[in-house]
Amino acid sequence: MSAGPMTPTTELPATRLLPEELEVARLIVSALSLEVAPEEIEPEAPLFNEGLGLDSIDALEMALAISKAYNVKLRSDDERNHRIFASLRSLTAHIEKNRAR
């Protein structure tokens, strides 16, 4: 952590999604036919198990949808894999960083 004069943990309301996060949330909800409104997904909550309750079937479906929409290929040997799938926020960040524009 840097000890610079940063505002301590900038207060985005926990439920507010960034536009690109909302886009990924919509993609996930429609690809997986989830029973949740995209706007209501907690950006920092875990996607798998206890959070959004996704499982390995969903992981494959999600990988397909993300590959089609963003041309970003998810990989399981990726060292950062656990971090990428940790939350909607981390997944979106990964997509934004790797997407073909």
């Binding site: 390995s56 992981a59 494959l60 990988a63 397909l64 590959s67 290929k73 998810l74 990989r75 399981s76 040997d77």
Partner: peptide, 9 residues
Amino acid sequence: AGESFFPSD
């Protein structure tokens, strides 16, 4: 040996 789950892997 390695983990292979996603299509690219």
